[in-house]
Design a protein around this nucleic acid. Structure first.
Lengths: 243, 243
DNA sequence: GAGTGGTCTAGACCACAGC
DNA sequence: CTGTGGTCTAGACCACTCG
């Protein structure tokens, strides 16, 4: 290490970070596991502890790692808590957060539509797996959700014995396929409920729905999942914190 | 400095940060101005440069300061760019970001409703200033917005010669009143357009609208503004980035 | 007590902006 | 050339966790 190049100038701690991410992606360390201590990593990479620290801090700041004083640095794992506080933004009027129950309506294997291909950076027609499900809050159907992923990234998904989808999808992706979701972009709009949506969500056709179009990205910043959520926001709202 | 207490244990750099924020709030340094260099601040506070650096970095990470290598550390100022990229989330289908033109419909001075009081942490009935305006994107009316602030925080606002509201409100708050908005919480939902909304936005009554209920906070983390935006999202969408 | 991350220091050198 | 922030190092000490 300790080599600086002419053109780019990549700081050491960035290089260390890249190496660490490579090892995460390769599965050297699994979610929930503890990394070697700062000192050991510094020795291994032949840099100072402070440099390793800066790399680890950056990764912790984007929730890829979790640091615990006195214990160690852990690979962040998708838990119910994380699903609830980072990736599920529908909350009650009183501010309560509850993960909805999910009921899968059906699973299809198709070629990617033009839109799906665009969202997932695939070739049109590339094989994808599609799930439809209804999620209920307080026992009432509240979200009608369509989830699309590339079959190439999740072989066997949606076929026995993997034909069911658990409630917390990202946890499942991580544990079964080693695919970790780290961030997402959501496009939100209001639309009138169609017949199917109205029936599934127990609403009148034409009722206003909040439509969330989400693309979720993995550790390497490539799109992994496309999700369309149509939400009845008469008893909940979508929370967005800006700073 | 350099004193540590028994109960709390406040790291030095946090104490430095608190002092810096105090001086920002008091108006010692105005938005857009340069702070003293790290070395000078370190001398002043009798701490090392690294400690000042950590305090400054934290403030930069929440957009209170802006650091420019080779130049200095600046107090973040609300600019059109910041309004556009941090506080305005309606973007076109192609991803284009445009700040809408605004037309103020009216200004009222009232006592805070129960809801306004709750949002702004005021006593019910406390004097507030209310603006209604319509914002247009691409020449089409797209957002009907109601803005509520406490009169005590903005004396004279909405009365001559300050009876008009510029397009970029936070810039105005900052320059005219020294009140800096640093973060906000938005509650988003879908609702059907009422008669007035439909008329103002050139829609059919009952058309689905995106309703954004925003509370914006100042440097001291106290609520400053409550804003209700009803948006026609047929040609735009609300963008939310999660990580 | 041993080991971990967290804070603080002091100093060297690098990249960048501007005179 | 000077001054700024950015990187990197080495070492000391503190707070926390656990056996």
């Amino acid at each position: 290490m300790a080599t600086a190049e002419a053109p780019g100038f990549r700081p050491l701690y960035i290089q260390v970070k890249d190496l660490l991410i490579k090892r995460l992606v390769s599965g050297d360390w699994r979610p929930g596991q503890v990394l070697p201590s700062e000192i050991k990593l510094a020795d291994e990479f032949n840099v100072s502890q402070g440099t390793v620290r800066k790399a680890l801090d950056e990764m912790a700041s984007v929730n890829v790692l979790v640091r615990r004083q006195g214990k160690g640095t852990y690979v962040a794992a998708h838990t119910h808590h994380r699903a609830l506080f980072h990736f599920f933004h529908l909350i009650g009027e009183d501010g309560s957060r509850v993960l909805p129950e999910s009921r899968v309506l059906g699973t299809r294997h198709r070629g990617a539509t033009r839109k799906a291909a665009e969202r997932l950076s695939l070739a049109p027609g590339a094989p994808v797996v599609i799930f439809d499900r209804v999620r209920s809050l307080d026992g009432r159907p509240t979200v009608f959700e369509t989830i699309v992923v590339a079959e190439s990234m999740f072989p066997g998904l949606g076929r026995p014995p993997r034909d069911m989808l658990p409630n917390t999808v990202y946890e499942y992706f991580e544990q079964e396929y080693g695919v970790t979701i780290v961030n997402a972009v959501e496009r939100v709009r209001a639309a009138a409920a169609g017949k199917r949506e109205a029936r599934l969500l127990d609403l009148a056709p034409g009722a206003p729905l909040l439509v969330i179009d989400r693309v979720a990205f993995g550790l390497e910043r490539r799109p992994v999942e496309w999700r369309l959520s149509r939400c009845d926001t008469s008893r909940h709202h979508y929370l967005s914190e800006i700073e």
